[in-house]
C-alpha cells in the first residue's frame, strides 16, 4: 500500500511511469490503481489525464464504461454470482435471491457493516458446473445455498 510520505498522486504517477512504454496503457494502469487502492478515486482522474496527455473526459469515460472499476471501496469479501443462461438453467436466479435474503442487500450493494459486496456477473466460464460464483476472485462451482453460506463464513473468518 501507500507508504507514509508518499501521496496518492505520486503513487499514480509512478504507476503511469511503469507503463510508459506500453501502447494504450490506460486500462493496465487503471487495473493497477484498483489493485492497489481497491477502487479508482475520482481524484486520480485529473492526474491520469495530465500524465497521459489526454482529456479528463477521456479518462472519466473509460473509468465509467467498464464495470470492473469501482468508484468506492468494496466490502471485505466480494461475492459475484453468475446470472447468465447456463447458470440460470440450474437455478442461478434462486441462488441470487437466496444471497440477497441472507445478506439483507440487493445485488450491487454492500452490507452496512462493510463485510460483503454482492454483485452479478455474466459468465465465469464454469458453465458445466453451475451455478457458478466468485468469492474474492476464486471461482466456485455447483453452488447450493448451503455451500454458498459456508464459503461466505470461510471468507469472513479469514
Amino acid at each position: 500500500m501507500v507508504s507514509p510520505g508518499t501521496s496518492v498522486t505520486d503513487r499514480v504517477r509512478a504507476l503511469v511511469a511503469a507503463h510508459r512504454g506500453d501502447r494504450g496503457a490506460l486500462l493496465p494502469i487503471l487495473h493497477r490503481i484498483q489493485a492497489e487502492f481497491g477502487y479508482v478515486d475520482s481524484d486520480v482522474v485529473p492526474v491520469l489525464a495530465a500524465e497521459l496527455n489526454i482529456s479528463r473526459a477521456d479518462v472519466h469515460g473509460v473509468v465509467t464504461f467498464y464495470s470492473d472499476f469501482r468508484s468506492e471501496p468494496a466490502g471485505r469479501t466480494v461475492l459475484k454470482l453468475c446470472r447468465a443462461e447456463a447458470c440460470q438453467s440450474v437455478g442461478a436466479e434462486q441462488l441470487v435471491a437466496h444471497a440477497e435474503r441472507v445478506l439483507g442487500i440487493k445485488t450491487g450493494q454492500t452490507t452496512p457493516d462493510g463485510s460483503v459486496t454482492l454483485e452479478q456477473v455474466f459468465c465465469l466460464g464454469n458453465c458445466a458446473l453451475g451455478p457458478a460464483g466468485q468469492v474474492n476472485d476464486r471461482v466456485r462451482g455447483r453452488l447450493s445455498p448451503a455451500r454458498l453460506e459456508s464459503l461466505l463464513k470461510g471468507a469472513a473468518s479469514r
Binding site: R70, A74, K106, T117, E119, F122
Partner: peptide, 22 residues
C-alpha cells in the same frame, strides 16, 4: 416474487461502480 425486486436493482442506480452492475 422471482423477478420483481431484482428488476429494480438491475436498472436502478444501486451499483457501487457506476458503470455496469456486476
Amino acid at each position: 416474487g422471482d423477478f420483481g425486486p431484482k428488476r429494480a436493482g438491475d436498472f436502478g442506480p444501486a451499483s457501487p461502480n457506476g458503470g455496469g452492475h456486476r
